[in-house]
Amino acid sequence: MSTKAKVIFVNSFKGGAGKTTLALTHCIDSLFHGKEEYENIIYMDLDILGTGTCFLFRDGRLPEAKCFEKQEAPVEVPLTLDEESGSIYVAYLNPKLKIRSVYGNGHYVNHQGIAAADILHKVVKFIREQVKEVPATLFVLDCAPGFSDMEQAILKECYQQETLGKVEIEEDYVTTLDSAHMKKCIQCLNDTIKALPQLASRRNIQVVLNDIQNYSGYLDTSWSEKVEQGWRDIVGKMRKELCNDNLVIRRWRYSEDIAQLSVYGSESVVENHTEWYVFTEDSYQILYQKEKESKKE
């Protein structure tokens, strides 16, 4: 059992990159393959621009009455993989946000800043209390695309907890292989690094290249060398352009099952297909990780 909490911050700079899928995969993979490292695994959907979380679980599992703004607590979701069972805890925002253009209750229409401050306060308070009560907790935060004040504030709070030795942090930024998306990711990521200069040397940034178009799968083997060269080029460019010492770059292999059923299927709820939300060595590869010099005594 871990003695420290972990926060995985999952973000992107464009919608539809696979952020929520990645976040849920972290949770479920840890639940079933994590060797009971964490006592509580908490998925927090903080996408105030329009959350899709409630669609991913069975009907009635995540009712409006139990949303995080009201309960300030997550809902337990039991899951089964093969013959093993366990639970993750899901903290989600009001499902009605999906159909509104403004965040929060009706009276917040002209007061979006207060609405955001309100939810931010609740999130930070919840994380602090959980870390204190159950140190062996994994938090996976699924954020709104971008790096707004809320994301910055949560990140600062988490790194503050890290300073106190209570938490370790991983920041995952998901991008597809679309060149414009990758360029935007690099540019925005560098902006976030500049926005928090005091944290520059401590941030553990992981860029996740979501091979959602299945470049690898579509092409036949005669192209495999070119594909591999392509990956090396991408990684090289990112290493060169991203100003972070702790950078890790991963490739996340395309899942045909999820993609197909999310297009025309209706049975893609997490509880029914838990097996899609785990990593394999092949599906989630490290393409680059800076070697850390070991400290000699």
Partner: peptide, 9 residues
Amino acid sequence: QKQACLLEG
């Protein structure tokens, strides 16, 4: 919440 919004007003 409503009071906070009113204060902002």
